[in-house]
Design a protein around this nucleic acid. Structure first.
Lengths: 193, 193
DNA sequence: TGATGACTGACGACCGTTCGTTAGCTGGAG
DNA sequence: CTCCAGCTAACGAACGGTCGTCAGTCATCA
């Protein structure tokens, strides 16, 4: 499957250098061909980028949905902390989440709309699922709160923070420190008194 | 001061398109000259970029230090929430913080070290100042906690979250929702029972 | 035979950079 | 007052490269 090799290489260079900084010749060289040959598989740079983007989106969405569906909902602390660990694992395991993060924050200007559409899709879906969970927990008095929206948004905030730290925190222990601190305060913030 | 006009234009394009995506000809056109003329003021693209970077760093550091020094330290809730509002204002008022954010997360590869050095400098300084404040508050029993490090890191996490939201949340009210949610949970998480 | 996959060659456009050259202004010297 | 030297700011032209893209060719294999 040559096409997947190309996508992998493209993913790597888009992640490292951004859309403008990634060149087709480098990507082609990575898979051992000339840049002109890429046009047998993709209509152009934009097409390649958008396909990589959609793959990354699907992969991330699938992982998160899978995890959220397997949460047993009896121990919110375990479930939520596990979600954070999942994000960290995803981020370190493959490039896709890293790519997704960069492009959702700083998309190529002429593709801002196309990227934004995908971002909103995945964002609202995950938020909705989380919100239902929090609603259950609040109903079961497992956590404190009136509306599920508040803990949901706060939790998604922690997810953002962790991902940002993953980008520029090269030190593993400092990341763990940050995660622990955020989690401790968050958990105390939504715990029953 | 033509040199500042150039820096302003460069700031704008670096922020919008990233280092690789910003071209000297566009920057020059913005100030009404040809790209060759830029070389009368800067040694090259890297030089221009690094000067803009250092200006942005100084501006951000100065604003934050000024605010942190003026905190009266009797009402941590007011002081901390005010700091978040300061970040939002800085972000919306001028481009510099936006530029700083993008470049600290995704610097041009060949300048990663140079950028990283500046980022660490500003980061440790702000963290140290905040930590001292939290230490005082813990000592005065104004907030809950054993070590000042935990609330400091958690708070800096919220700062990150807010900045990220500022990047891709076009809706003003959704940003406010997110801020409120994060703040509510955080504040409950560090409040005395 | 026909289709597929990779190739070579070439295209125009733009990149960052360097060079030498114009204007326009300024300040003394004659 | 004039004239010329020296400075500044911006310029056009051109450099070697790289960019993304398109067209045509050739070998492989069903």
């Amino acid at each position: 499957m040559k096409i997947n090799e190309i996508k992998d290489a493209a993913l790597k260079y888009f992640t490292m250098h951004g859309y403008e900084g990634a060149s087709l010749s480098q990507i082609a060289e990575e898979v051992g061909m000339k840049k002109q040959s890429l046009y047998a598989y993709f209509k152009g740079k934009d097409d390649l980028f958008l396909q990589v983007l959609r793959d990354a989106k699907e992969a991330e969405l699938a992982s998160k949905i899978q995890y959220l569906n397997r949460m047993d909902s009896v121990d919110p602390g375990k479930d939520l902390y596990g979600f954070l660990r999942l994000v960290i694992d995803l981020f370190q395991k493959d490039e896709q989440l890293k790519f997704w993060l960069r492009m959702s924050f700083f998309p190529p200007v002429h593709l801002t709309q196309a990227v934004g559409k995908e971002v909103v899709e995945i964002d609202t879906e995950v938020q909705a699922m989380l919100e239902r969970k929090f609603d259950d927990w609040i109903g079961a008095k497992a956590i404190y709160g009136n509306t599920p929206k508040t803990p949901t948004l706060a939790f998604l905030g922690i997810v953002d923070t962790i991902m940002i730290s993953l980008v520029y925190e090269n030190d593993e222990t400092r990341l763990q420190e940050k995660l622990d601190a955020c989690w401790a305060v968050f958990w105390r913030g939504i715990s029953q008194p």
